[in-house]
């Protein structure tokens, strides 16, 4: 783990609609680290991300980002973080250029067209699709545009919710390589997923979340990856219990 902590959950407890979603969850993510939070449906993965964005208020405990409590510093933290939602909720009536430009302008960081083109190349969005409205896109193509947007933000923290959902195997490999490269350049990545093997491929540490509780953390050895089979067994056990 890197020395400086970018994200830290301190005994985080969150309720939504009076129902506990996270209970006493604590973990930290260091600078330049790729951390994956693994869990089944309703485990509280997306809630954790939204809490770090300041879009959900913790019932107890604290969510810290860049050494600051997220509550009260939402705007400053959102400016340093790019968020990729679970479903790529971009605008169907706009094309890829227009979608990305719009969100970048809202973030007050507009980019020239050649940089957008470069980002689309990196995520593998075909050139002939870029001028078409997203209403004709597949789910995977929309996801690629959303990933390109996250990259173009050029911020030190990426919060990714099921980032490979809808991508084909080749695109998943390309995405994983991209995330690894970003981490090597100093970006911190926290992703939530229910894809055990995908998490092992890209993350140096994986937290296992079950019904709102962090039931285990797996760390990759210095010269290797997390054992996917072992993680899968742990995931299955936690699901069964």
């Amino acid at each position: 783990m890197s020395q400086q902590q970018v994200l830290e959950a301190q005994s985080l407890t969150v309720q939504r609609g009076g129902r506990p979603v996270l209970h006493d969850v604590s973990f930290a993510v260091g600078e330049g680290e790729v951390f994956a939070l693994l869990g089944g449906n309703g485990a509280g993965k997306s809630t954790t991300l939204l809490t770090f964005l300041g879009l959900i208020e913790p019932h107890q405990g604290r969510a810290m980002a860049f050494g600051q409590d997220v509550q009260g510093n939402e705007d400053a933290i959102r400016r340093k973080a790019a968020y990729l939602p679970e479903t790529a909720s971009l605008y169907a009536h706009l094309n890829a250029w227009e979608n990305v430009s719009y969100f970048l302008e809202l973030a007050r960081s507009p980019r020239p067209r050649d940089e957008l083109s470069q980002a689309f190349d990196e995520v593998g969005l075909p050139a002939d699709a870029r001028d078409r409205r997203l209403e004709s896109y597949s789910k995977g193509m929309r996801q690629k545009v959303a990933i390109a947007l996250a990259l173009l933000r050029s911020v030190p923290l990426l919060l990714l919710d099921e980032p490979t959902s809808g991508l084909d195997p080749v695109a998943i490999d390309e995405f994983n390589a991209l995330i690894t490269a970003l981490a090597e350049r100093g970006s911190t990545v926290m992703m939530v997923t229910h894809d055990v093997y995908g998490a092992c491929q890209v993350a140096r540490r994986v937290g296992l979340l079950r019904r709102g509780e962090l039931v285990g953390t797996f760390e990759a050895p210095p010269e290797g990856m997390i054992d996917a089979d072992e993680l899968h067994r742990a995931f299955a056990r936690s699901h069964a219990s």
């Binding site: 939204l50 964005l53 879009l55 939402e74 705007d75 959102r78 400016r79 973080a81 790019a82 968020y83 939602p85 679970e86 479903t87 909720s89 971009l90 605008y91 969100f103 809202l106 973030a107």
Partner: peptide, 14 residues
Amino acid sequence: ERGSDLLLLAAPMS
């Protein structure tokens, strides 16, 4: 309904 509000709020847009 479409979930784009989260993307807008995270943009960040208040």
